[in-house]
C-alpha cells in the first residue's frame, strides 16, 4: 500500500495523517509476515490497534466539533469493529509462529484499513471538507 490512494483521501489533514500512519504500521506488519522485516507481529499489531482506537476517538471528537449529524452512527460503526480488532489480535499472537495465521492477519489488516476504516470515513468527507478543518 505505502501511500493513500487519491480515492481514499479525506482532504482533511488530521484524518489523512492518521490514515497514512495506520497504513504504514500495517505495511510494516505485512513486511514482517513476508519475511522482509525482522519485527514481531505480536508486538507491532497491538500497537497498531492501539493507534486505531486513538484515531477513532480523535475522529469522533472532530465530528462532534464540526456538528456532523450522523456522529452517533459513525461511533456505532467504530464499536462494531471491536470484534474484528479482537480477531486481528488473536491472529497476531500466533502469526510469528504460524504462517497460516500470518497470511490471515495480512488479509484481515488490508480489509480493516481500506474497507472498515477509510471507506466508511468517506461518508462524511464532503461535510468535513466544507468546514475547512
Amino acid at each position: 500500500m505505502s501511500e493513500l490512494s487519491k480515492s481514499f483521501e479525506m482532504e482533511c489533514e488530521i484524518l489523512d495523517r492518521d490514515h497514512q500512519e495506520l497504513m504504514q504500521q500495517i505495511d510494516k506488519i505485512a513486511a514482517v509476515i513476508d519475511g522482509n522485516d525482522d519485527g514481531r507481529c505480536a508486538k507491532l499489531t497491538p500497537e497498531m490497534i492501539k493507534f486505531a482506537k486513538q484515531h477513532f476517538t480523535r475522529e469522533e471528537a472532530l465530528l462532534i466539533k464540526v456538528g456532523y449529524p450522523d456522529v452517533k452512527k459513525h461511533a456505532a460503526h467504530h464499536q462494531n469493529l471491536d470484534h474484528k480488532m479482537e480477531t486481528i489480535l488473536e491472529l497476531a499472537a500466533m502469526a510469528d509462529e504460524n504462517s497460516l495465521a500470518g497470511e490471515k492477519l495480512k488479509s484481515a489488516l488490508k480489509f480493516f484499513l481500506a474497507d472498515d476504516i477509510i471507506d466508511a470515513d468517506l461518508d462524511f468527507k464532503s461535510f468535513v471538507k466544507d468546514r475547512d478543518i
Binding site: L4, S5, S7, F8, A114, L122, D123
Partner: peptide, 9 residues
C-alpha cells in the same frame, strides 16, 4: 491502492 474501490454506488 491496487484493486477495486466502490463508494456510495
Amino acid at each position: 491502492m491496487e484493486g477495486l474501490h466502490i463508494h456510495g454506488a
